[in-house]
């Protein structure tokens, strides 16, 4: 059972990184192309990237610890 979890974990980690990068590129494209106001864009980017960074720290730590 644990080996199944380990295999899924191993695949899920790069998948979530790729999905995040693709959607972030799409969102950035929309924000720039359709002129979201500069002040709002600054605030939105700050929130989006900071919270994402915190979440990815959790993802990375739990990924590493799940193999111990």
């Amino acid at each position: 059972m644990e080996s199944i979890f380990s295999t899924i974990t191993l695949f899920a980690f790069p998948i979530i990184i790729v999905v995040f990068i693709i959607i972030t590129i799409v969102l950035e494209h929309h924000w720039k192309k359709y002129s979201v106001g500069i002040d709002i864009l600054k605030r939105i980017r700050k929130i989006y990237y900071r919270v994402s960074a915190v979440l990815f720290i959790f993802v990375a730590i739990s990924f590493a610890l799940s193999f111990l």
Partner: peptide, 9 residues
């Protein structure tokens, strides 16, 4: 930790 990983994802 496996649960924590999937929950974070």
């Amino acid at each position: 930790f496996t649960f924590l990983f999937f929950y974070s994802v």
